[in-house]
Design a protein around this nucleic acid. Sequence first.
DNA 1: GGTCCGGACGCAATCGCTTGCGCAAGTCCG
DNA 2: CGGACTTGCGCAAGCGATTGCGTCCGGACC
Lengths: 318, 318
Amino acid sequence: MVTMKEVAQLAGVSITTVSHVINETRAVAGATRDRVLQAIEETGYTGDAIARSLVTGGTKSLGLAVSLVSHPYFAELIAAIEAEATRAGYSLVLIDTRGEAESEQAAVRMLRSRRVDGVLLTPTAGSAALPELRRLGVPTVLVDRLTVAQDTDQVGPENVQTTSTLVRHLAELGHRRIGMVTGTPGLATTDERVLGYRLGLGRAGLAWDESLVAGSVEPLLGRVTGVVVGDHQVLANVVRTTRASGVRLGTDLALVAYDEVEWAELVDPPLTTMAQPVEEIGRTAVRLLLDRIEDPTRAPQTIRLVPELRHRLSCGCH
Amino acid sequence: MVTMKEVAQLAGVSITTVSHVINETRAVAGATRDRVLQAIEETGYTGDAIARSLVTGGTKSLGLAVSLVSHPYFAELIAAIEAEATRAGYSLVLIDTRGEAESEQAAVRMLRSRRVDGVLLTPTAGSAALPELRRLGVPTVLVDRLTVAQDTDQVGPENVQTTSTLVRHLAELGHRRIGMVTGTPGLATTDERVLGYRLGLGRAGLAWDESLVAGSVEPLLGRVTGVVVGDHQVLANVVRTTRASGVRLGTDLALVAYDEVEWAELVDPPLTTMAQPVEEIGRTAVRLLLDRIEDPTRAPQTIRLVPELRHRLSCGCH
DNA sequence: GGTCCGGACGCAATCGCTTGCGCAAGTCCG
DNA sequence: CGGACTTGCGCAAGCGATTGCGTCCGGACC
C-alpha cells in the first residue's frame, strides 16, 4: 500500500506536511500544497484508516447490531442508516445479533474491540449488552425496539396510539369483537402494541378479553369480526391461514395490520396497514448517534415517529 | 480502554508475554499464563483490533459492497453472508453502491482505506471498481451479478438454463406466444436471462420476436398468452399492472417468474417462481473469498448455483 | 567443572499516521 | 537596525499491538 512516506518523498516534503495538507489542519504554502496533491494523485495514495485511528482514537465507523432474521423490514432500515452514515463520512460495521442475548453480547464485544465510535442497537429480549455499553460509556442509540427507561437515546415508531387508532378504525366500522394477533413475545414493541390495542378498546367502549389476544389467528377465527395484526412477521401467516380456512378478509374478517409490506396491495383484498417511517427512523437514529458522539453529555432523547395509515380494503371499507 | 500494558503490569510480566499468552504463539509457563489470564479477566481487557491490524496487516474484516436498493432479496443474502463471515471470525463492513458506478468506486476506495482483507461485490452496470480491485490485488468475489470473464471468483445463480426451463414449462402447456419482462437493463444477470429466454424458445421450436421482450408488461398484454418475468424487482409491477388491466393471471395470462418473493403464495393466484438458493450463494461467496485470501494464487472459480422451481398456479397448472 | 541446550521471558523495533514544539527566514515598525 | 510577529515547515514522540533477537538460568552430559 502507498504510505504517506512515499508521497512525502515524491513531493520533497516531510510527512508532517503531507498530513497537514490532507487534513487541512495547518496552513501550507500554495506551491507546496500543489506538489503534495500532485504526488498523492500520482501514487494513488488512499490513506490508512487503521493507522489514523490508532492515533486519533476515533475510527469514523459505527457498529450496527441488529437482528437480521426479520428480513424485509430491516433491509430498508439498514439502507437508510447506511445512507446517512455514509453522508456523514462514517462507515458501518454490520453484525447480526440473531435476536439472541448471547450473540448480542458477543456482537457488542466485537464492535468494541473494533473501536467503533458508536453503536446502533436493536436490543434483543433479555439484552445484557445494553448495560455493558452504558457502563463502558460507548455512545449508543436504540433503534426500533425501545426500552421504558429514558436513559438512552432511542428512536422508534409510536406504538401505543398508533395501534389504538387501528382498533378504533375497526370499532368505528361497527366491529364489537376485535382480536389481536401479536408479534414476537417479549419485545418491547410487542408489549406496547398490545397496550395500544387495549387502549383502543377502552376508547371505543369495548371490553378487554384476554382470550382475544393470540400469537396466531387460528384461535380467533369465528370469535371475532375484526383483527389487528401486530407486525409484519405474523402478517404473512395470518393472510395464509385465513385464506386456507376460506375466511375472506374484508368481508368475513376485517383486518388492519401494523407494518407496511411490499405486497400489501398485491393481495386480495389489499391490506390496510400502518406504515412506519422506516427511512426517517434510520436517518434519525444516525443523527442522534452522531450528536451523542460529539457531545457525550447531552441529555438522552427518546424519539417516537408516527406511522402513516395506508388505508386499503382489508378493513372492509370501500 | 484497557491496554496490554495494564494487563502486563497487573500480572507482573512484560507485554510480550501477555501477547504470547493471548495468541498462544509461544510457550509460557503455566503459572505465568494463569496470572496473565487472571489479569485479563480482572481488567476486562478486550484487545484492540486497530492496533493489531496495524502491525499484522490483516484486519479480519470483509467489505460488503452491494446495491441496497434491491431490498427484499439482498436482506437474505446479507444475512447469509454475515453468518458465514462471523463463523470464520471476520466482521463485515457494509457499504451501499447505490447501483451506480460512481458510488461503487467510492465505496471500494473506502473499503481499501479501511484495509479490509477482501471484498464481496455486486458489480454495477458499468463497474470501474472491479478492474481497480484486480490491479491492486485485493481479494474479491463477485456475487449475484457475474461477468463473462472468468478471471475473478464469482458466485451467482444459473440464469440461462433456468430461464429456459421457465419458457419450456409454458411451451409445454401449449403456449405459442411467450413474452418476457426483463429486469434492470445492462446487468449481466438480465442479459443472461434474456439469453435463456431465447434459448428456451428455440428448444420449444418457437420463433424469437424482439417485440415480445420489454421492460414492463403493458406492451405485451393481448399479444402473448404467457410471460416470463425477469426478476423480483419488476414482478410486483407486473402483478399490479395485470390486475389493474383486469387480466387474470393463470387463466388470461400464464406467468412464471425468476426470483422467489415472500408473497408469492399470498397473491391470487400463487406465483410460479424460480427460487434462488440465496443462503447458499451467500455462504459460498464468503468461502470463496476466504479461500482466496488464504491463497491469492488459486485459479479463479465461477460457481453457478441452480435455482429451484416453486411450482404454483400462475402458470396455469392446477 | 566446563560446555551445551532448552525453557521462560524481556527489549526494542516496527506498522502508518497525527500533532505539540521548535526553528529559520521574512515582514513590519519604532 | 534590532526586536516582535508571522509564515512555512520539520522533528520526534506517541497510539497499542506483534515479533525477531537476546539474555538468563538450571540441568544434562562428558
